[in-house]
Design a protein around this nucleic acid. Structure first.
Length: 214
DNA sequence: ATCCCGAGGG
DNA sequence: CCCTCTGGAT
């Protein structure tokens, strides 16, 4: 695990991210709060491209919890079979939809506790919804951010919560809102898991990673 | 710690 | 073939 980069270095990194991409956005397709919640839940250990392929046909049919219940677990499974872990995900989305209808008036709750009480929704998914839909400064830490945070030294930590804290503590306040997507996109296209593309990386000179041969 | 679990890339 | 992909529940 790389050591924590100095504050000024982290600041310079995000200054470059912002210059390169002023308004970074996620790439998971959704139509409203409910479909965002479902899309994020489906994205566990799956690529967003793969999730989008399945939700393209699905969401026009089931863009509310009630319509999802009408579709049913069998029907839903038919749409998402191309996504890994699809049985657990189908079961969770149906159970989640029932709770939304019965306990939240069909709306997506805005509190962490209520979100994490939903089946298939853990800390990471809750943080994404809190950030993207409700505008809270929540830092969702996924596989990309865990890797990029440690490799670069922007936010080192052995577990997601530690990295979450490191981001809150070491990323300048003005960059916190978009930090999630900047780090995700950097991890997805440049700081990839296998052979990070350091030659094409715009923060390579500031990064703590040792092997920059690629 | 283990299970879930298909698609895409190297 | 092996690894990875915006994790969560047990």
């Amino acid at each position: 695990m790389a050591r924590q980069l100095p504050y000024q270095t982290v600041k310079e990194i995000f200054t470059r991210f912002e210059a390169s991409e002023p308004e970074p956005k996620g790439e998971l397709h959704h139509l409203n709060a409910f479909t965002l919640l479902v899309a994020v839940a489906l994205s566990a250990q799956a690529t967003d491209a793969g999730v989008n392929k399945a939700t393209g046909p699905l969401f026009p049919v089931a863009d509310t919890p009630q319509k999802m219940l009408d579709l049913g677990e069998e029907g839903l499974t038919g749409y998402i079979k191309s996504i890994g872990l699809y049985r657990n995900k189908a079961r969770n989305v149906i159970r989640m939809s029932r709770i939304l209808v019965e306990e939240h008036g069909g709306e997506v709750p805005s509190s962490r506790a209520a979100l994490e009480a939903l089946p298939g929704v853990g800390r990471k998914t809750a943080n994404v919804v809190l950030n993207m839909w409700w505008g809270h400064p929540a830092q969702a830490v996924d596989t990309h951010i865990l890797r990029v945070g440690n490799r670069t030294g922007i936010a080192p930590g052995k577990d997601p919560v530690a990295v979450e804290r490191a981001i809150e503590d070491h990323v300048p306040a003005e960059f916190q809102r978009h930090a999630h997507h900047w780090l995700i996109l950097h991890g997805r296209y440049i700081c990839v898991a296998r052979k990070p593309k350091c030659k094409a990386c715009l923060i390579s000179d500031l990064c703590a990673y040792e092997d920059k041969t690629t």
